[in-house]
Design a protein around this nucleic acid. Structure first.
Length: 555
RNA sequence: GUCCCAGUAGCUCAGCUGGAUAGAGCAACAGACUUCUAAUCUGUAGGUCGGGCGUUCGAAUCGCUCCUGGGACGCCA
């Protein structure tokens, strides 16, 4: 627990005690004390609505209850400076902000670790994200999933969860046959032959590239192989090429995985039949119309689902059940899947599987990432996988830059549709929020560098000299960081982080414009301010790290 | 037809486990660089929180209903 949380906890305890002392309610009638930070500073540092909540229990008017609570309150215990009663019955607390200065030594000592907590208590969470089919380039939707997924993982780790990042490779289904056929077609075309693309072929530029590469490396020699050999070759070659490219693009995007899980391995290790048989033993399987069905309607799905088709092959759900069983067998407490919005209809049957396997439905959480619309020159850019015209992550990284992409995708809540404005993301101007935050970091670096050049060592700073309103705003903001990270983790809301660091950067810029940090006529104050600046720098850098954005030392 | 997401300032969005006068960025307007980076700051203006009904001390937030936009409803993956 850091100084902020400790102080809030003390305050809550003091309020609770006051309620008891005033005999307004019994121990178990008291609701959880909620402290909020009022938007208006005139309403104090913290406020509680407990008097209103108790109105019914105590059968008194909220304001009268508030009066009685305040009268019983032990001011000395919780760094309370003064108390007000306002509005319909809010109790506003003005804190003795001396405690805030304790934050600076804490932050300077913890460095990269500042913001971490044990909120997750070591809970083991597996996060599966991106998992794009290895049949083409990553596009905007995947980029959003990658940004959100990776950031969420970072945040969870910082909040004390144990995280494993996983990518599920769909390398077994029909789409891989189509990939092989597409590669074959592009290879033949590259040799100048008239060769039609298959019906459900992949039209991306990457596959044309594979065809060309094969034509250069092998000439026409591949055509001498048998049909089966050719198909197997194109399949393996295409798959490897696509996977290497996916991993490379993601790595460049600063996203790496602990595990790449192959769907084919489920077949090779014969995990699918046992998974289905397990469900059969539990009575959730039946045969109808020559197919094998999973009775998902036992668990809130609107219709039952086929596992084995009439022709004996599996539907997509079968390996997926085996896969999730495997995940659970690996001992994770919680599974988080990050899916595109077009898969949301798939959630009920997957949760049914989790429950049929004997786990709580909420062992599996699915975070849905809503659609991304791309705008350029004020117009919506059409995206189509079929024609291969989609804007790829790679193109985007080259044109816009990784920092801006990652910031843009994480700054909005994932369940909102997102309009990605190419021109704004590309612009190196003050319209672009990512630069605003980075600039704050760079500004601090410049100040610290200049202090060093002037041989000002602030190791013996006295933080109690930071008494101005702007400095106090900054300190309060700094103190919130740990809680913000914990909330973002628990509620799976990575977008809280960009919001927070934007606010922190704003407080920094405001402070910077109001007060000169380096003032050689007042060394003591300078030292205190330099220490404050370093604390802000560390916090900004830690926040940026969580969302995979760089913290430049100069701009 | 059923289900999911969204509808908040001119634009893009926060706020949604119910709380005080609904916030931010951009755009608009007025100011601030002999000063540690003006990629900044200070201020002004801008709203029937899609509509209606309900729940209660109190609703952008919860419930019902309707409207609008997007998506999903395969023995595809």
């Amino acid at each position: 627990m850091n100084v902020m949380q400790e102080m809030q906890e003390n305050l809550k305890q003091a309020i609770k005690q006051a309620v008891l002392d005033a005999k307004l309610a019994s121990e178990d009638e008291i609701p959880a004390i909620i402290l909020e930070q009022p938007k208006d500073k005139a309403h104090g540092d913290y406020a509680t609505n407990v008097a209103m909540q108790l109105a019914r229990v105590a059968k008194k008017a909220p304001r009268q209850i508030a009066d009685e609570i305040v009268a019983s309150l032990d001011h000395s215990k919780a760094s309370i400076k003064s108390v007000d009663i306002a509005g319909p019955g809010f109790i506003n607390f003005f804190m003795n902000n001396q405690y805030l200065t304790n934050l600076i030594p804490t932050i300077l000592e913890q460095q990269e670790a500042y913001g971490s907590s044990n909120t997750g208590n070591g809970e083991k969470i597996q996060v599966e994200f991106v998992s794009a089919n290895p049949t083409g380039d990553l596009h905007l939707g995947h980029a959003r999933g990658a940004s959100v997924g990776d950031s969420l993982c970072n945040i969870l780790q910082k909040a004390g969860f144990v995280v494993s990042r996983e990518y599920y490779i769909n390398d077994a289904g029909n789409q891989i046959n189509n990939l092989a056929l597409s590669v074959e077609a592009r290879y033949n075309q590259a040799l100048g032959k008239d060769f039609q693309m298959p019906e459900d072929g992949y039209h991306g530029a990457d596959i044309i590239g594979i065809g060309k590469k094969l034509a250069e490396e092998h000439g026409e020699e591949l055509l001498n192989k048998s049909q089966t050999e050719q198909h197997a070759f194109f399949r393996e070659y295409g798959l490897k090429y696509e996977l290497d490219k996916l991993a490379e693009d993601l790595k460049q995007f600063r996203v790496t995985f602990d595990n790449w899980f192959s769907e084919t391995s489920l077949y090779e290790e014969e995990r699918i039949v046992p998974a289905i048989e397990l469900l059969r033993e539990k009575g959730y399987i039946y045969e109808k119309d020559g197919a094998t069905w999973f009775r998902t309607t036992d668990f809130d799905d609107d219709k039952d689902r086929v596992l084995v088709k009439q022709d004996g092959s599996y539907t997509y759900l079968s390996p997926d059940i085996a896969y999730h069983k495997n995940k659970l067998d690996r001992g994770f407490d919680k599974l988080i899947n990050i899916w595109g919005a077009d898969h949301h209809g798939y959630i009920p049957r997957m949760r049914a599987a989790i429950q049929a396997l004997g786990y709580d439905a909420d062992t599996l959480e699915v975070e849905i990432i809503q659609m991304v619309n791309l705008f350029e020159n004020g117009e919506k850019v059409k995206m189509s996988k079929r024609t291969g015209k989609a804007v790829t992550l790679r193109e985007l990284m080259e044109e816009v830059g990784i920092d801006a992409i990652r910031y843009f995708f994480v700054m909005r809540s994932a369940d909102s549709h997102l309009d990605f404005d190419m021109d704004l993301a590309r612009s190196q101007s003050n319209d672009n929020p990512v630069y605003y935050v980075q600039y704050a970091h760079a500004r601090i670096c410049t100040m610290l560098k200049q202090a060093k050049e002037k041989n000002i060592d602030y190791a013996d700073y006295d933080a109690s000299l930071l008494q101005s309103e702007k400095a106090e705003d900054l300190l309060k903001k700094l103190g919130e960081f740990t809680q913000v990270v914990a909330d973002a983790a628990v509620n799976r809301m990575p977008h809280r982080i960009p919001q927070y660091i934007f606010d922190l950067a704003s407080s920094l810029h405001s402070f910077y414009n109001a007060e000169k940090v380096i003032n050689e006529d007042n060394l003591e104050e300078t030292k205190a301010r330099l220490a404050l600046m370093e604390a802000v720098r560390i916090t900004l850098a830690n926040g940026l790290q969580l969302i995979g954005v760089q913290a430049p030392e100069s701009m």
